[in-house]
Design a protein around this nucleic acid. Structure first.
Lengths: 307, 307
DNA sequence: TCGTTTGATTAGATAAACTAATCAAACGAG
DNA sequence: CTCGTTTGATTAGTTTATCTAATCAAACGA
């Protein structure tokens, strides 16, 4: 009989397109993975992967098998997660968080979670929205913190709080811009606007509120974290949108940076917690959402004292 | 991680409601099964089965897990079967056949199959229609030979041949009944009619053509095979319907038995081969159907020489 | 009360899976 | 072309998982 272990290894192999890399991904040595794949092929009586020099290629059968393995593994992981968490916030819980929220929300949230659920083995994974959604659906994450609007592809989303965008720049730029009147998002020039790399929902959502499309970046941001962005902006390299939730941290890190609140209606994003759909009541999910919401609102309160 | 082995054992345990019986069913000793169940519970952090004296009971979580295990195991078995048979009639093939067809069709069919597919590891399982359909759906069988009309619950059915019902009884009974005119199915008295036990589609289909409902059996048939039934009928215990396909065998076994063909429209059943639904062309299925059809038609030809 | 049935437990054997070391083929830079 | 590098296969030996056999304790029924 085929085993779930074989399927796991096979999926990793198909993803990494390399035996060695796949082996590393599943934390075994390359011969161990090679052997399992070989046995899988033997057990099915069919070759699943063509070994090309420096690359692999799935056979027709391999493609069918891959699809089904994904399905079977997802079902299994979902089952495990569902049962493990069925009696509230205990056991292991793996949470995904997008990069523009994680560094700000997590420190406070984790403190609260630790306090509320002593015996919880919490693991956190940072990735962009699309990846998080796929991982939740595949059972690799139990839940994820993302920012709406975003197509959650059938996942359940519980809104936590509203995170407004502020305008951030060097003292000089901000003062020049706001001398006569409060700036509106649509007034901003795409050329002076610095944004995170492609894939970050913050950038997309920010462009959206300005009615702009992404243009060639004036500065290549490389590492592309909000912290880096704030550092650049404080040095006068342009303007950016800064979510309220990041305000306190980034003001502390970049004291030269100035921020202004937009006039109403302020541009915003909705931070939400998502999970797989299911008919049953998820106690752990409600609990977790409440804790995250508390942490977020605390951050927002502090931010609103400053801007 | 949960394993498929654990799931298999757990499903067996839930079915047999006994650790020892389940262990036997999966061909391991009782401690081996107990241990796997224990590990499964540990891995999920939840008790799945309550150990009662002389019985077990699934917990709420256990019921959820059971359902999902069925699903996951079915997917896996289906995958294995699909890939193994993807290059035609080779590898292992497990075929189910209903009891009123198996002893007649299989001897000839297996000869043909052996000849046509040397390297096929063919396994046969005899059971009643409902069970066969469930097993095909669950991936425990690759295909099954059943008799229509029957609700195949979404499986693909390929008709093989038409099997007519003849009237069988002792010489005396048959001659008395057919002295003045050919008998029609609807003329038969339910009291003189001997049928197989409940669950056999042959009995249900036969009653159906007579427009009758099952009454209290005049004779308890016990073992309830067509062969036994023919033996009884030949001794004058009543009349029965005998499918053409069984004629040659049963005439040889019970030489005292007499048969008469009904006038047109003759009552009949359609023998069909069923498999899981799938978009792809199933070469092995077509091949197998052709071989079974040939074998069946040969039997029918020989039967029509006799009646 | 005693024999029987059933599942847990333990110790030891077997099989599955893994690692470390090595090898052969294929590639790319010099 | 040659040498160093990368990649997957192979082999040997170890670890871990899983199994069996034997035994035990609890619960039942005669």
């Amino acid at each position: 009989m085929l085993t779930l272990r074989q399927m796991t290894y096979f999926v990793a192999l198909a993803e990494r397109r390399s035996f060695s890399a796949a082996a590393e991904a599943v934390h075994v040595t390359q011969p161990a993975l090679s052997q399992q794949i070989k046995e899988m092929e033997a057990s099915l009586g069919t070759q699943l992967v063509e070994r090309l020099p420096r690359d692999i290629r799935l056979t027709r059968a391999g493609q069918v098998v891959l699809e089904r393995c994904h399905e079977i593994l997802a079902l299994t992981r979902n089952l495990e997660a569902e049962i493990r968490l069925s009696k509230g916030l205990t056991g292991r819980l793996t949470l995904g968080v997008i990069p523009t929220i994680a560094p700000y929300l997590l420190p406070r949230a984790l403190t609260r979670i630790k306090a509320a659920a002593l015996d919880l083995d919490m693991r956190v994974r940072e990735a962009q929205t699309a990846e998080l959604i796929a991982m939740v659906a595949a059972g690799q994450l139990d839940a994820a913190v993302i920012a709406l609007p975003y197509d959650t592809l059938g996942l359940m989303a519980e809104p936590l709080f509203t995170d407004r965008f502020l305008l951030a720049g060097s003292q000089a730029r901000i003062e020049a811009l706001t001398a006569q009147s409060a700036p509106r998002p649509t007034d901003l020039s795409p050329d002076t606007l610095l944004l995170l790399d492609e894939g970050h929902c913050l950038a997309d959502q920010a462009l959206d509120v300005c009615g702009l499309k992404r243009t060639r970046q004036t500065v290549d941001l490389g590492a592309s974290s909000l912290a880096t962005l704030c550092g650049l902006v404080a040095q006068g390299f342009g303007l950016t949108f800064l979510p309220e939730i990041a305000l306190c941290s980034e003001m502390a890190a970049s004291p030269d940076m100035a921020v202004r609140r937009f006039p109403d209606p302020q541009p915003e994003r909705t931070v939400a917690l998502v999970r797989r759909h299911s008919t049953e009541v998820k106690e752990w999910f409600t609990e977790l959402a409440a804790l995250l919401k508390d942490a977020g609102e605390e951050l927002l309160c502090e931010a609103r004292v400053r801007a």
